[in-house]
Amino acid sequence: MSSIADNIGSVTRRIQKATLQAGREPGAVQLLAVSKARPPDDLHEAYAAGQRAFGESYLQEALAKIEALADLDGIEWHFIGPVQSNKTRQIASAFSWVHSVDRLKIARRLSEQRDPGMPPLNICLQVNINEEDSKSGSRITELPELVAAIGELPNLKLRGLMAIPDPDQPEAELRTSFRKLANTLKQLKTDYPDAGPLDTLSMGMSGDLDIAIAEGATWVRVGTALFGKRPAKS
Rank of each mutant, 00 (worst) to 15 (best):
E152K: 14
S96Y: 00
R89G: 01
L156M: 07
L125V: 05
N128H: 02
E112P: 09
E173V: 15
N86F: 05
L104I: 10
T184S: 08
Q126P: 10
M118V: 00
V127E: 01
L158M: 08
K105P: 04
D133R: 14
A148T: 03
L174M: 12
Q113T: 05
E142D: 13
P82C: 08
R179S: 14
Q90D: 11
A163F: 09
R114Y: 05
N155P: 07
Q84E: 02
I123R: 04
P116I: 04
I150T: 04
Q90H: 12
S134D: 09
C124T: 02
L174A: 06
M162R: 04
G137L: 03
A149P: 07
Q113G: 09
L185P: 01
V147W: 03
E173I: 13
L185N: 01
L158P: 06
K180I: 11
L181T: 04
V101H: 03
N183M: 14
D166W: 11
V147C: 07
L143F: 07
T88C: 12
K87C: 07
R114D: 05
D133A: 15
K180V: 13
I106A: 09
C124V: 02
T184P: 04
L181W: 09
E112V: 08
K105G: 09
K135I: 12
R114S: 12
L125A: 10
I150N: 01
E173K: 13
P82N: 07
D166C: 14
Q90F: 09
N155H: 14
N155R: 13
S85W: 00
L153Q: 04
F95P: 08
Q113R: 13
G160P: 09
T88Y: 05
S111T: 02
R109S: 14
A182K: 07
T88V: 08
R114M: 12
D166E: 13
I91A: 05
R109A: 15
K180Y: 03
I129W: 11
E131N: 14
D133F: 12
N155Q: 08
P167A: 07
R159C: 14
D102W: 04
T184Q: 10
E145T: 13
S93W: 01
Q84D: 03
P154F: 10
P154K: 02
V101R: 01
M118R: 14
Q113D: 02
D168Q: 15
F178Q: 02
L125E: 00
I106W: 00
I123F: 01
E131F: 09
E112W: 02
S136N: 12
S138N: 01
